[in-house]
Nucleic acid binder design. Structure first.
Lengths: 191, 191
DNA sequence: GTCTATACACCGATAGAC
DNA sequence: GTCTATCGGTGTATAGAC
């Protein structure tokens, strides 16, 4: 049995989750300390106790955390299962990460705007690694390296495109239906 | 010959274009009046002369204007040319609208965040109309209505996804290559 | 139409009591 | 660890001269 996580860590995790919802909905500049305090139930001063660096430290921690969350989806590509199974599991995990299209990808939200200057370059490298991990699976499905790399980029673009257009169209099902089709497409591209 | 546009209107057009660049790069909350004044070369007080409603009026005008710009891409779907030709022209026009992936779609940028509450619903209706216009062309290519509707949503998602992932990957060519492939895909889906 | 000067609210951040 | 009170700076918006 796994060891019980310390309550300190558990409290910090819910604190971070509450903070993330504000940045997700309002972006970096739109997320004021008053909003953050209200969302967490703490005062502004208490937030500075947990994050002495203020807003900059909060967002740095949140980016780290969101990248780790997203990483958990790409971990589904590891293991000895067939590549199409792993790719479909990844797509499902990504869907979970963005709450089936109801939420956002915090990494993507924060990388648009003033935060990109500070965290944009390392995040871009991370996304390249993720694209390579996807490409490896497409190669295992029979595609040549160049084509696999292309298919990996297309899959990423489709996922984020479905997420964004679902919000533009205000259609909660747009993302869900798109995910379903994407998974069928992975099945087919095996031939 | 078309009548020469009045200098007043021309000045206002460049003014709006300058303001748009700031909102595109910084989002609604990130675009302060100081930034907007600097970008236009006017003082803050002068901005209030042109837009008495302040920042809210500026962004309302900009949304109207950006929607009209984007509409110009969808106008390429009209006419008597073959549907695949019209769809490819639309894709090129969209690419031009976002400066080949180097810029953003101002509509999409503003609809994420606090502005969505005010302008989100009418914009969503507009996007539905645009999706329908695309679906009509896919029907003309031989797809049944349901499938054409799906293909239209996929095309929109791919365009916005390529735009977003190109920025996440910091790869200026990602969008350009994706556009090329999308156009080839339209060719193929004809058969 | 454009400007400088300014009003007033809110922002991020700190001090210090409990 | 949490709070109230408060600081200096900046944000939006206005007054009024030119």
């Amino acid at each position: 049995m796994a060891p019980k996580p310390s309550p300190v860590t558990a409290k910090r995790r819910t604190l971070i989750a509450d903070l993330a919802t504000v940045f997700q909905a309002r972006g970096y500049e739109g997320a004021t300390l008053a909003h953050l305090a209200a969302a967490t139930g703490l005062s502004k001063a208490s937030l500075y106790h947990h994050f002495p660096g203020g807003k900059a430290e909060i967002v740095a921690v949140l980016v780290r955390d969101a990248v780790a969350d997203l990483q958990r989806a790409f971990v589904r590509l590891q293991g000895t299962d067939p590549p199409d199974v792993k790719l479909k599991r990844f797509v499902d995990a990504f869907s979970d990460y963005v709450d089936a299209g109801r939420g956002h990808c915090l990494v993507a939200v924060l990388m648009q705007g003033s935060i990109a200057e500070q965290h944009g370059a390392p995040t871009a490298k991370q996304f390249e690694d993720w694209r390579d991990a996807l490409a490896t699976q497409f190669e295992a499905l029979g595609s040549k390296p160049k084509r696999a790399h292309r298919e990996a980029g297309e899959l990423l673009a489709s996922l984020y495109g479905l997420l964004l257009t679902g919000k533009l169209l205000r259609d909660p099902d747009h993302f869900r239906r798109g995910i379903k089709r994407l998974k069928r497409g992975i099945q087919k591209s095996k031939h």
